[in-house]
Amino acid sequence: MGETIRQRHSASTASLVILMILYAAISVYLIYISKYAIWGFATEENAQKFFYFQHDMVDLFVNGFLAMGILYAINAIGTFLIIKWKKLGYWIVLGASILALLIDVILLYNGGNTSDGIAFCIASILSPIILWAVLQFKSESQSCWKLLK
């Protein structure tokens, strides 16, 4: 009865939904790649064609892709929490993005595909920044960030 009605800017809501869908799609893609890698590579030649690195590094990269997929799923959950007015969602996205950046750097350091690795590094850095900017849209002179609990 005493709770005020909160309303976010429509661009904010649309951006949050788009981010959540992107996180989920990236998560499915990365988990699919790791599943394919686990079941599809019986020879060193196949591993080198797909991942561009030595066969003895396949386990590291498969686990890295799986971890990245899980972290992007966590980002989707965090974004859903923000849609449900929970400030905790932003901190979940920030933490998962930092962990994803660390995994990206480890994979790059160990000889991963440079263009993909750099793209995921940039995405891990920009993700919480874009989310923060989306939360700054104002509706009735209050930002979405101030309305989160």
Score class of each variant (00 low, 15 high):
M68T: 13
E44A: 15
I74W: 07
I38N: 00
I38Y: 00
Y72W: 13
F50I: 09
V62Q: 07
E44M: 08
Q54L: 12
L60A: 09
T43R: 07
G40A: 00
I77G: 03
A42P: 03
L71Y: 07
L66I: 10
N46C: 14
G64H: 01
A37C: 04
Y36E: 03
I74N: 05
F51E: 02
E45P: 04
F61V: 03
A76P: 05
K49N: 12
I74V: 13
M68Q: 13
F41E: 04
K49G: 10
Y36V: 01
A73H: 06
G69N: 04
F41S: 03
Y52G: 06
K49E: 14
G64T: 05
N46M: 15
W39K: 05
I38R: 00
N75H: 12
Q54A: 14
H55M: 12
G78Q: 05
N46A: 15
E44C: 12
A42V: 06
H55V: 09
A73N: 09
K35C: 03
L66A: 13
V58L: 15
A73F: 10
T79W: 10
K49P: 07
F50G: 02
F53T: 13
N75C: 15
F50V: 12
G69W: 02
Q54N: 13
D59K: 12
T79S: 13
A37Y: 00
W39C: 04
A76E: 07
A42L: 08
F61H: 03
G78V: 04
F61I: 06
A67F: 12
N63T: 07
A47R: 00
I38W: 02
Q48N: 15
I70D: 07
F65M: 08
G78M: 03
Y72V: 03
G64S: 07
L60D: 03
Y52I: 08
Q48V: 15
I74A: 09
I70Q: 11
V62E: 04
N46I: 13
G40H: 02
H55I: 09
A76H: 06
A47G: 06
Y72L: 07
A42D: 08
G64E: 00
A76Y: 05
D59A: 14
N75R: 11
Y52V: 10
A47S: 11
K49Q: 13
F61R: 02
T79C: 14
V58C: 08
I70E: 08
I38K: 00
F53R: 08
V62P: 02
G40E: 01
V62F: 05
A73I: 10
Y36P: 00
E45M: 13
V58H: 06
F41P: 01
G78I: 01
Q48F: 15
D56L: 08
G78L: 06
A67L: 15
Y36C: 00
I38T: 00
A37M: 01
L71A: 07
F61T: 01
Q48D: 15
I70S: 10
D59Q: 14
G64D: 02
M68K: 11
G78F: 04
Q54I: 12
A67W: 11
L60M: 13
K35I: 04
Q48K: 15
T79V: 14
A37G: 01
A76S: 11
H55L: 11
N46F: 14
F53E: 04
Y72M: 08
G78H: 00
M57L: 15
L66W: 10
D56P: 08
I77H: 03
A67D: 11
K35F: 03
M68Y: 10
I70V: 15
M57N: 14
